[in-house]
């Protein structure tokens, strides 16, 4: 069983410690929800796992099956099977979603097998259409420039489409629910469920319970002050929905210096 382990992780952003002694292990097929108030380091954690150069790891490790990935570039981490659905995906003018995804798929296939000659245009089109069907997306979407002029909901759907095509082993969904209306939320969530189906380890980062109504987590963690302070089952998310984060603040005190919105 493949697993993604985050071990005693400490991360600095602009000389401030945002992640402190974070520990979490996600096995393939498990769905974890990571919840917590704004500014507790959830997105920082996501970026750090992907290898964003702005985040400085002072100690700890991130491992896949016991092997550290900290020395790898973001693309190499993607080749190891990690995927991040961004909270705010950037737009790339002039590059169509289809062209970009084909380049990405070919890059991954080539990394796995150096002799890979690349997927044919016809085969790729078939693959893309089947994945777009899954997410109930209009085909013309594929020829639009990547995220350029996409609505908030369209961007999120495009993120999950990328996940569907690239078939990662671990997916981090960073507030994928924000910006989605209730219908889109259902479609996207069902898409994630179909893709995961026990094959993917998923980390759902969210403030709210609502996405978890569709994607049932095996574990729920509350992140506060740069680390996980509470872990439990799905009921924990329901408690947050009812009671908010106030009890967390009371139990663990105000945020340490340097961690705020």
């Amino acid at each position: 069983m493949t697993e993604l382990e985050i071990r005693n992780l400490h991360v600095l952003v602009n000389d401030k410690e945002i992640i402190r002694d974070f520990n979490l292990t996600i096995r393939q097929g498990e769905i974890h929800a990571l919840m917590g108030p704004n500014g507790t380091g959830k997105s920082t954690l996501a970026y750090t796992i992907m290898g964003h150069p702005r985040y400085q790891i002072t100690s700890g490790d991130v491992l896949i099956d016991g092997e550290s990935i900290l020395g790898l570039t973001p693309d190499e981490r993607a080749h190891k099977g990690i995927f991040l659905a961004f909270q705010y995906p950037v737009s790339i003018p002039g590059v169509s979603l289809a062209n970009f995804l084909r380049v990405a798929l070919n890059a991954r296939n080539k990394a796995v097998n150096p002799d890979d000659k690349g997927i044919s245009v016809v085969k790729f089109r078939q693959l893309l259409k089947s994945k777009m069907d899954l997410l109930k997306m209009d085909y013309q979407f594929a020829s639009r420039y990547l995220n350029e002029g996409f609505s908030g909901g369209e961007k999120k759907r495009a993120e999950i489409l990328q996940m569907a095509v690239l078939e990662p082993r671990f997916a981090i969904l960073d507030e994928t629910d924000s910006g989605l209306d209730i219908d889109a939320l259902r479609i996207v969530s069902e898409g994630v469920n179909t893709l995961a189906q026990g094959h993917i380890g998923v980390l759902v980062i969210t403030h709210y319970q609502r996405m978890l109504n569709y994607i049932t987590p095996d574990f729920v963690h509350i992140m506060y002050g740069g680390r996980i302070v509470e872990s439990g089952k799905a009921e924990l998310a329901l408690r947050l929905e009812e009671q908010g984060y106030e009890w967390i603040r009371e139990k663990y005190g105000v945020l340490p210096d340097g961690i705020h919105d």
Binding site: M50, G51, A111, Q162
Partner: peptide, 9 residues
Amino acid sequence: FYLQTRGIP
């Protein structure tokens, strides 16, 4: 960074 996270060198 965005493109790299998709596996593009």
